[in-house]
């Protein structure tokens, strides 16, 4: 690993877009100590903060660590130094998708894609449609298949989607946001 990488690129981009300063992290590890997914991640929350601060951009987008974050916000709630790792990870996921969508783990990517597509189509999410779409676009095809009858029997799955009146509105909002996927709201002037 070269140590001549520019630490400013991602660090300042993060700061500009989210107001978060990864250089602030003093690596106490309290975030990773409380992270429910830490044992499954190759880069734990404090590693992620460190990788940004030292400009190891590639490392961040290589594995699936950023995709394993559940956004349970435990890290952010307990950070003694007022960092917001959960927000930082959201930023990285957005950036990863913009860079190369294929890098995200397939089931997770498929889920998010199906979810947003549901919103775009109906304005609301209908689980039946969501599950079908998710499975078709790359989620585990046979996982939980046996659950569907149970769900149905309990009246938990609406079969027929109904669409909201303002669907045109929602569609426009989704398209506009996806088009300008990089906002600039980090620090106010």
């Amino acid at each position: 690993m070269s140590h001549n990488e520019n630490t400013q690129g991602l660090l300042s981009e993060l700061r500009q877009q989210t107001g978060q300063n990864a250089a602030r992290c003093y690596q106490c590890g309290k975030c990773s100590a409380g992270c429910p997914m830490a044992q499954e991640m190759s880069l734990r929350p404090h590693d992620i903060m460190r990788a940004i601060a030292s400009g190891h951009e590639q490392r961040l987008f290589e594995g699936d660590s950023i995709w394993l974050c559940l956004t349970c916000e435990t890290c952010t709630a307990r950070c003694p130094n007022e960092c917001d790792p959960a927000r930082v990870i959201d930023f990285l996921r957005e950036k990863a998708l913009a860079k190369n969508p294929k890098k995200a783990p397939r089931p997770i990517r498929a889920f998010h894609k199906a979810f947003i597509r549901q919103i775009r189509t109906h304005g609301r999410v209908y689980e039946m449609g969501l599950i079908a779409d998710y499975k078709l676009s790359g989620g585990a095809l046979f996982q939980d298949v046996s659950a569907a009858p149970g769900m149905m029997a309990r009246g938990k799955l609406a079969l027929m989607p109904s669409t909201i009146d303002g669907i045109a509105d929602v569609r426009r909002i989704v398209d506009a946001c996806l088009a300008k996927s990089h906002g600039d709201h980090g620090e106010e002037a």
Partner: peptide, 24 residues
């Protein structure tokens, strides 16, 4: 005529969308 808040998927993939959906 409320719409979906975007839940996990919007904020995990597009910050602006994660604000705009609930904002509507």
């Amino acid at each position: 005529d409320w719409n979906c808040c975007g839940a996990t998927s919007a904020h995990a993939t597009n910050h602006l969308l994660s604000i705009a959906l609930p904002a509507r």
